[in-house]
Computed example of a mutant assay.
Amino acid sequence: MTNAHAPFSEPHPEVLPLGLDGVLVRFALRFDAGANRAARALVASLEAAPLPGQVECVSALASTLVRFDRMATTRAFIEQALRERLLDIAHTPTHPERIWRIPASFGGENGPQLTQVAQIAGLGEAALIDQLCASPLDVLAIGFAPGQPYLGLLPANWEMPRLSALTPEVPAGAIVTAIRQIVLFANASPTGWRWLGRCAFRPFQLHAENPVPLRAGDGVQFIPVEHSALSAIEATGDPMGGARLERAS
């Protein structure tokens, strides 16, 4: 793992062509906390001050994609401008400005594989839930399905592999884990990650003014509630599922 204050895992991030109208800035060849922060910092910089001809920018776990209008600019210009922009963000760590507090219920029908996760992590079930809910999680990336967040990183005892066979389906709102990360499912889906909890918050809300409430770089904290409390939240029909958005102090 890289130093907590070092944004790049490699001394020189790669600026690579991608398709006809894309440039990929790759900070590492595999997930790395510093590379992830750097990818998010580059997006924040490009959103605050877009490059001429920039159409879109989005971060993944260790890279940033920038799309450009081929009628308005050139690939050579975008690539050079990105190299210059990287110098500006090289020592700018990102910290969550927004933190989501999301009620969630764990174990039983809301998380049938909680016992298995606790055994692998070397904790009792209650201690595992306490550790998860006390861990500061960042939205590392949005992907796989609209609005769906990858959250991390959890402590080292959460370093567990994916399942050897798929769980045929987990419901929308399922909280699953593998490789020190959490995924909060936007829709019912098969998964190879272990299912330990569920919430009523929907990370993709088709008819909302803002269909994707979470964004990369947000902080997330799960607030444990009983199954009956989760059922009461669901009965309201609110896709925010009792989640509270707070500004970091």
Rank of each mutant, 00 (worst) to 15 (best):
Ile120Glu: 15
Arg101Glu: 10
Gly124Cys: 06
Leu128His: 04
Val139Asn: 03
Gln113Tyr: 13
Leu123Pro: 04
Leu128Ser: 00
Pro103Cys: 06
Asp130Ala: 15
Gly143Tyr: 00
Pro112Glu: 08
Glu109Ala: 15
Asn110Met: 05
Trp100Leu: 07
Ala104Trp: 09
Asp138Cys: 13
Ser135Glu: 10
Leu137Tyr: 00
Gly124Asp: 13
Trp100Ser: 05
Asn110Trp: 10
Ala141Cys: 13
Ala121Cys: 15
Ile99Pro: 00
Asn110Val: 02
Glu109Arg: 15
Leu128Arg: 02
Phe106Ser: 05
Gly124Ser: 15
Thr115Ile: 08
Phe106Arg: 00
Asp138Thr: 15
Leu114Val: 06
Asp138Leu: 15
Gly124Val: 05
Ile102Tyr: 04
Glu125Gln: 15
Leu132Cys: 02
Val117Met: 09
Val117Thr: 07
Ile142Thr: 01
Ala126Asn: 10
Val139Thr: 03
Glu109Ile: 12
Ile102Gly: 05
Gln131Tyr: 07
Gly143Pro: 08
Ile129Cys: 02
Arg101Pro: 01
Gly143Asp: 06
Val139Met: 05
Gly143Thr: 07
Ile102Cys: 02
Gln116Asp: 14
Gly124Pro: 00
Gly122Lys: 07
Thr115Leu: 11
Ala121Arg: 09
Ser135Phe: 01
Cys133Met: 02
Gln119Cys: 10
Leu140Val: 06
Phe106Gln: 06
Ala134Tyr: 00
Pro136Val: 10
Ala126Gln: 15
Ala126Arg: 12
Gly107Met: 00
Pro112Val: 11
Cys133Ser: 12
Pro136Arg: 12
Leu137Lys: 02
Gly111Ser: 06
Gly107Ser: 04
Ala141Ile: 01
Leu128Asn: 03
Ala127Gly: 05
Leu140Asn: 09
Ala141His: 10
Asn110Ile: 08
Asp130Ile: 01
Ile102Thr: 04
Gly124Asn: 11
Val139Trp: 08
Leu123Arg: 10
Gly124Gln: 06
Thr115Gly: 11
Pro103Gln: 07
Leu137Gly: 04
Trp100Tyr: 09
Ala141Glu: 11
Glu109Pro: 14
Ser135Asp: 06
Leu137Trp: 01
Ala127Cys: 11
Ile102Val: 14
Pro136Leu: 08
Phe106His: 01
Pro112Gln: 04
Ala118Val: 07
Gly124Glu: 12
Ala118Ile: 05
Ala141Arg: 01
Arg101Cys: 03
Cys133Leu: 05
Leu140Gln: 13
Ile102Asp: 04
Ala118Gln: 10
Ala104Phe: 14
Gly124His: 07
Phe106Asp: 07
Ile99Tyr: 04
Gly122Pro: 03
Leu132Arg: 03
Gln113Val: 03
Leu114Ser: 03
Ala141Gly: 11
Asn110Tyr: 11
Gly108Lys: 05
Asp138Lys: 12
Ser135Lys: 02
Leu140Thr: 00
Cys133Thr: 15
Arg101Tyr: 10
Gly108Tyr: 02
Leu137Thr: 07
Arg101Ser: 12
Gly111His: 07
Asp130Glu: 15
Gly111Met: 11
Gly122Gln: 07
Ile99Ser: 02
Cys133Ile: 04
Ile142Asn: 00
Leu123Tyr: 06
Ala127Ser: 12
Ile142Ala: 06
Gln116Ala: 14
Gly108Met: 00
Asp138Arg: 13
Ser105Asn: 11
Gly108Cys: 03
Val117Ala: 11
Gln119Asn: 11
Gln119Met: 13
Ser135Cys: 14
Leu140Lys: 10
Leu114Pro: 01
Ala121Gly: 10
Ala127Phe: 10
